[in-house]
Amino acid sequence: MALFLLFLANGLAYGLTLFLLSSGVTLIFSMMGVLNFAHASFYMLGAYLGFQISQVTGFWGGLVLAPLMVGVIGGAVERYGLRRVHAHGHVAELLYTFGLAFLIEEIVQLIWGRSAVNYVFPDLLRTPIFAIAGLDYPAFRVVMAAISVMAFLMLLLLLLRTRVGLVVQSALTHARMTAMLGHNVPMVFMSVFAVGSGLAGLAGVLGGAALVTEPMMAQQLGPIVFVIVVIGGLGSLFGAFVASLAVGLLQTFAVGFDRSLGQLASSVGLAPDASGNFAELWSISLSQIAPLLPYMLLILMLVVRPRGIAGKRDL
């Protein structure tokens, strides 16, 4: 039971960070109809900039400044790149973000090298705040979860309770009509892109310090983000939230419960033949297939419910 609680806490913290990352993708998609392949690269930029700034100001300075810088970079990418490419259609946009992802990866390697940088949370956040089943639970996980929840609530408040939010919601579906009412829609697009990138940067500052900051981190997390956006439903913040938690918990539990498929089958009453033709299959552990689970969920979702949990349209 204690172990279950630990996995639950870890899974929630991981899932909430995934949400920080995927909220931007889903907002940008529903507004511009473009799947931003470079989004995870902004996550990586957040981690590296957080690392760099923390060398001067300490961790907290990086936590504040790095997401802001990534937001500005994201805004510039929209204003001076994507907006021009937009006229040539979605394929051009997709290729543009695809190229951008590689560009950012190369630049990161050029500046910070190919190996991981030494970026960790400060001692204060690494101290355990409680222990479950003899395992320490470090403070930074709680901080990560709290920051993600705050970001979600602020985003929801902004979207649902302010006039700016109304303009964003309107521009999501009726950009031209919104402009005809005197609202600067290109500016709204740029701001959404900047905020989405900034959130990815924030996820990067946290994720980079919690996991590892290296040039492959964007490639590793990028596909998961798309899984979340599809499962949650393209364009739905709420769906992305639920899907992030689901994927976070699923992966954490799969890694945590280190049982083989054979043991798992036995526990539900099946009797796998441990020496038969599928012996190797039954000996695969759940933690081994953990990385596959999100993609299996993705495929299942596409077949059963193409619009995702809360999406407004089919893919």
Binding site: A179, M180, L181, N184, P186
Partner: peptide, 8 residues
């Protein structure tokens, strides 16, 4: 002018 400025 862009649309929103015409509206304004």
């Amino acid at each position: 002018l862009p649309t929103h400025e015409i509206a304004r």
